[in-house]
Design a protein around this nucleic acid. Structure first.
Lengths: 135, 135
DNA sequence: CCTTGACTTAGAGTCAACTCTAAGGTTTAG
DNA sequence: CTAAACCTTAGAGTTGACTCTAAGTCAAGG
């Protein structure tokens, strides 16, 4: 079974415009065309889209995703480089997670502080209450 | 002890340009000026900057941070609204964390797959190895 | 045959968040 | 006294990632 650009876009939770933009940026070299020039997405292509979505949502810039995809298209000789890029990207994700958790704690403390002011009885999972900044 | 815009920017890991931009967007109503019109940052101001940084790094748009800060400046009557905003923001952070962890697992599987191809002996903490997409 | 609706392209427009420039003011060191 | 090194403003320019428009092609239904 294959998909039109609209159907593929729906499955990926983006617009057809966005998929065309990705194609223009070199992210979709694997997508083929039918006799009248329209893009045809296969199940395998949707897996590629899933990978792109994964990299995008972890903060990799479109250009770098393009580089990665081009490396994939270039074949086995690029496996070392691809592996290295993903390892560095994993480091970036771990730093994001750390920062996000740290900031979440600060927000939690602030909410706790507001809960006290407003007189709410321990509704949320609390950390020890100390405001991040004055006010 | 007080700080110039450059020193405050350094402490916050942004440029002085960025702090002026934040001021223009209404994020720094608390910062006062010296007799010749230059911004003077107090220790308390740096705490505010810390809060702004926290909200920014968890994905809150500048405009919304502006709204929050204006609410703070408006006094006690806005405590309920501020609390509500932070509670909703916490939900957004938790969703981000969930997605980030999910995508991290996919990246880990892909790295494991490359490790096998490249013949590396279990260097990293592995999840069960399955590639995200073909190739 | 003709309209409807999906697709195509090149290229322009939008938005957030900076990032920088120009032109000028003030304070300190030589 | 003046040059360096800060600061100020208004406003223009950049970047990344879309987002949309215009003009056109193509296949199916009435």
């Amino acid at each position: 079974m294959t998909y039109t650009i609209k159907q593929a876009a729906e499955k990926m939770n983006v617009t057809a415009h966005t998929l065309r933009y990705y194609d223009k940026e070199g992210l979709l070299p694997f997508v083929s065309r039918d006799k009248s020039g329209n893009r045809v997405f296969t199940e395998g292509d949707l897996e590629w889209l899933g990978l792109i979505s994964c990299l995008k949502h972890t903060g990799m810039p479109i250009k770098q995703i393009g580089t990665y995809i081009q490396w994939c298209a270039a074949g086995e000789s690029s496996i070392g480089a691809r592996r290295q890029m993903l390892i560095e990207h994993r480091e970036a994700i771990l730093r994001q997670l750390e920062e996000l958790n740290h900031n979440l704690e600060a927000i939690n403390r602030k909410i706790q502080y507001y809960n006290k002011l407003v007189g709410v009885k321990a509704v949320d999972e609390a950390v020890d209450p100390q405001p991040v900044a004055a006010e």
